[in-house]
Design a protein around this nucleic acid. Structure first.
Length: 423
DNA sequence: TCTGGGGTCCTAGGACCC
DNA sequence: TCTGGGGTCCTAGGACCC
């Protein structure tokens, strides 16, 4: 049996852990640049007209009228809280798959099946006691059913955030009471196609002809169909696979026209992704740079362009990647536009030790590696970005994201610890 | 004025090879 | 009317997830 544990309104819950005064109050967390809502707690969700992913300026009035507390996103805090939750889960099973920042699958086959209800409640209570984060638990024979059981448990309050599918009756009850669009892996497009055949519930889908499913939804759909019928097709992935691509693309805090500033932002992003690349001990064979104006704007002239450069030899050197990225950026940049976003993608990543050495730049490679290693060591000792390339610039980041309401990084910064009582 | 960001997997079709 | 057959690699695009 597999359990899916999912944190309730994770980002908002993280904020509330350190702000007990916000218990039972509506709380939302905003995206980068404070652009739109990416998380809302129960109380905020209960207010109608707070749709997720809506630009904040459209619903500002509703937020204010209801005294909704808004936070800028604070990923440093959320990552650390996530680690605490995951550590707690490891006490319940040795087979844990960290599926995302706020959910995990864990294998419970060592437990007696009739005890699972108790185990589920125990997991929920222990995580809350250790971290302050409320979670939901869904348990079933397959990942897809566990995922749906979890969602079902949250939706129907009488389940108190726990649902265990340990009988055929409960499987049918779960699927009968879930809509097609609630099936994990069925998005908008497939939901329409499925419903057009007359299916209304997840159970109807599970009873469809598998040939139709295969044809319309490929092998992914067939796996899902089997999983809903109790046949496990998705394995537990306990060792995270190295990423095949690493990218970043963030909107600027302000529209940019100045090439120099865009270049600084681009260099900064290259340093970020190159760092992640080295952490997973990979090298990139291609780098892609793209630049775009604000496509939402009706006034601005629109322009977007991207360029993909194949590197002469695969690398994870910030220096080399920056050189290539800026060469690319120069090619696609055109004057006369107000730019909104620049992005960098590292593509076709391969393991460091699988690289085919290019005979002709061995020397260069080694020198470059020494510099990169030294920069990494210094930065891990003295703090992120203390040592950087000159192209990143040293002035205030005029392109930086807007984060007006970020909470303190309570758990990772000594100077941002919580204070109690008078100073 | 203000509209997120980072991924995965699969398939079809083109280019190319023998 | 008939129009080889088998294969690989790559890319773009679709669909989905959190």
């Amino acid at each position: 049996m597999i359990a899916l544990i999912d944190c309730n309104s994770f980002y908002a819950s993280c904020e509330q852990v350190f702000r007990p005064d916000l218990q039972n109050k509506p709380v939302v967390v905003l995206s980068n640049n404070d652009g739109c809502i990416i998380a809302a707690n129960k109380q905020a969700k209960a207010l109608t007209n707070i749709p997720m992913f809506q630009p904040i300026f459209k619903i500002k009035k509703i937020l204010d009228a209801n005294n909704v507390v808004c936070f800028s996103s604070n990923y440093t805090l959320y990552s650390d809280m996530s680690r605490r939750v995951m550590d707690t889960l490891k006490n319940f099973s040795h087979i844990v798959e960290e599926y995302s920042i706020d959910e995990s699958f864990i294998d419970l086959s060592l437990y007696n099946e009739k005890d699972l209800e108790t185990v589920a409640i125990n997991i929920k209570e222990t995580v809350y006691k250790n971290t302050g984060i409320p979670v939901g638990v869904g348990i079933a024979k397959t990942k897809s059913l566990a995922k749906m059981a979890n969602k079902f448990a949250k939706k129907h309050i009488e389940n108190d955030n726990v649902y265990v599918v340990n009988t055929e009756e409960k499987r049918k009850h779960l699927l009968q009471n879930s809509k097609v669009k609630d099936i994990w892996g069925v998005g908008k497009k497939h939901a329409v196609r499925i419903e057009n055949t007359g299916c209304k519930t997840a159970l109807d889908f599970a009873n469809m002809e598998v040939a139709w499913v295969r044809k319309q939804m490929t092998v992914i759909g067939e796996r899902l169909w089997r999983e809903l019928n109790g046949l496990p097709c998705l394995e537990m992935i306990t060792i995270p696979k190295p990423k095949k691509a690493i990218g970043t693309a963030k909107s600027f805090g302000y529209k940019l026209t100045d090439y120099r500033l865009i270049e600084e932002a681009c260099s900064y992003y290259v340093a970020e992704v190159a760092d992640l690349l080295r952490q997973q001990k990979s090298v990139a064979t291609q780098i892609q740079v793209f630049l775009t104006t604000n496509y939402h704007s009706e006034y601005d002239k629109q322009y977007q362009q991207s360029i993909t450069i194949t590197l002469s030899s695969p690398t994870n050197s910030t220096i080399k990647l920056t050189q290539q990225a800026l060469t690319g950026l120069k090619k696609i940049y055109k004057t006369g536009f107000r730019y909104k976003k620049v992005g960098v993608n590292l593509l076709h990543l391969v393991s460091e030790d699988q690289v085919q050495l290019n005979l002709f730049n061995v020397d260069h490679k080694i020198t470059s590696k020494k510099i990169t290693d030294t920069i990494d060591i210094l930065n891990s000792k003295f703090g992120k970005n203390k040592v950087k390339l000159a192209t990143v610039g040293n002035r205030e980041k005029q392109w930086a994201l807007i984060k007006e309401q970020r909470s303190p990084r309570f758990t990772t910064q000594w100077d941002e610890l919580m204070t109690i009582g008078k100073k």
